[in-house]
Design a protein around this nucleic acid. Structure first.
Length: 454
RNA sequence: GGCGACGUAGCCAAGUGGUAAGGCGGAGGUCUGCAAAACCUCUAUACGGCGGUUCGAUUCCGCCCGUCGCCUCCA
């Protein structure tokens, strides 16, 4: 299959370095606020990446970090007068819950910055020893000019960056673009001991350290949002390659486009966002996933309720095709052409929009086979299988915490069937309308009434 | 100012050097007591604008307009 590599700017043939196991690292969140749909989109996409790679027969080691110590956490915790670690812990728990709700499979490992201090300190020391970093005034900085090719991921040069003129000069830095590996602690801040004095790790070093610690010197895929390309991923490359001497640090860099709300990027710090929690209250997980995966992952995606509502109706159509019962005896529906289209689309840099198009076409064929009295069990299971590769459950809305209403609704639907037979249509229609008002849709088929929630 | 991305039907959104997937919506039809669902047919003389290359461009190149992102924390 082919994957677009940000580093080369081209689609390249992909296979894991060892031929079997894909080492994949996806940048996680800084848990200081609720997750928004931009996070949901990114992690949904990388979940689909992982599922598809496994579908191809690879095993995938998927590592995703939590940046559980950082300026924002300290700031928020101070304002709320809680312990920074507690604050982070709370948002991490929320994050797990929400990602589970979105049917995003758990990563193989979720390392946290605060649990990687020894690795981080070792790496910083190693960088100092090799001349790539220098302590200054309790901080430690990376010497950007020492790293060949710094800026190549972002396609920038040091000169170009300086032209931005938005860089705050720091008297302790040798070069304005040098970045912190270690930040000396100020009074009252959380701190860890180090050879350079008490402090905490800089933002970029944790990812380098975790990658190295858990996945080795070279990993197959490193993913994240496009907003991480610079400076975060650029700096990761600089740190990791300088430390290990191994090139490349990452074989395939993958970056998803950003979710926009209205005309702007969704952003935690700017407060422009729709939280995952809010979205899940309005829409089914399948609808959100279908919405996310209906556009190519590298393009920006505009979030709008109308678009997700459209996806909700589409999801319902897929669900219904995946769950109809009562196949006939005519010739089998052959789903191979649809499977091929799906695979071909996904092989082309995870072209999920086209893969989804194949799913909709297959769903139509299943419905047709039903109408024509043909067999479709194999096609239907293909539909479910491929949907699952994208992480779509195609399950109906669950009844939630309520006791199971099924026997009672069944009874009403059955009684209504009797009324219809007796041509008591007014009463039958009234039952249907009242069930609808309670959130149960009743449909009449040749085999009698059937119902679903929603 | 520098770097990058994008601009396709009412809306969302793929894609190709030789006249445009899919979804939602809409119109008509089949089925139905009605409705819903499902299925069938239709719904972009053409892909921001202007030039260029080409037998031929929406697809390549240049310029312009518009939108967005990054350059500072950010999936």
């Amino acid at each position: 299959m082919k994957i677009y590599n940000t580093l080369s700017g081209r689609k390249e043939e992909f296979a894991p370095a060892d031929g079997k196991t894909v080492k994949m690292y996806v940048c996680g969140v800084t848990p200081y606020a609720p997750a928004h749909v931009g996070h949901a989109m990114s992690y949904t996409f990388f979940d689909a990446v992982r599922r598809y790679l496994e579908f191809l027969g690879y095993s995938v080691v998927h590592v995703q970090n939590f940046t559980d110590i950082d300026d924002k956490i300290i700031e928020r915790a101070a304002r709320a007068e809680v312990d920074p670690a507690k604050l982070a812990e709370r948002y991490i728990a929320e994050f797990y819950d929400e990602m589970d709700s979105l049917n995003i499979r758990r990563a193989s490992l979720y390392p946290r910055a605060t649990e990687e201090l020894p690795t981080i300190v070792d790496m910083i020391q190693g960088l100092i020893d090799k001349g790539y970093a220098y302590p200054a005034n309790g901080d430690v900085y990376f010497r950007v000019r020492k790293k060949d090719g710094y800026g190549s991921l972002a396609r920038r040069t040091l000169e170009g960056m300086l032209a931005g003129a938005r860089i705050e000069p720091s008297s302790h830095k040798e070069h304005p673009m040098d970045f912190a590996l270690w930040k000396g602690a100020k009074k009252g801040e959380p701190e860890w001991p180090s050879p350079w004095g008490p402090g905490r790790p800089g933002w970029h070093i944790e990812c380098s350290a975790m990658c190295h610690h858990h996945l080795g010197e070279t990993i197959d895929i490193h993913g994240g949002g496009q907003d991480l390309i610079f400076p975060h991923h650029e700096n990761e490359i600089a740190q990791s390659e300088s430390y290990t001497g191994a090139k490349p640090f990452v074989r395939f860099w993958m970056h998803n486009g950003l979710v926009q709300l209205g005309e702007e990027k969704m952003s935690k710090s700017l407060g422009i966002l729709v939280t995952v929690k809010d979205a899940l209250q309005k829409f089914s997980p399948d609808a959100l996933r279908l919405f996310f995966l209906s556009s190519y992952y590298r393009s920006p995606l505009k979030f709008s309720e109308e678009s997700v509502e459209a996806a909700e109706r589409g999801a319902q159509r897929l669900r219904s095709a995946a769950s109809i019962e009562g196949q006939g005896t005519g010739p089998d529906l052959d789903s191979d052409p649809y499977r091929r289209r799906f695979v071909e689309a996904m092989d082309d840099d995870f072209n999920t929009p086209q893969a989804i198009a194949a799913l909709f076409d297959l769903a139509r064929q299943v419905n047709r086979a039903f109408d024509e009295g043909r067999r479709f069990d194999e096609a239907q299971s293909t539909l479910r299988e491929l949907a699952e590769v994208l992480g779509l459950t195609l399950r109906g809305l669950e009844s939630g915490t309520q006791a199971d209403i099924a026997p009672f609704v069944d009874l009403l639907v059955e009684m209504r069937g009797e009324l219809r037979k007796a041509k008591q249509f007014e009463l039958a229609d009234s039952i249907r309308a009242r069930l609808q008002a309670l959130g149960v849709t009743v449909e009449d088929t040749a085999q009698g009434g059937r119902w679903r929630k929603g």
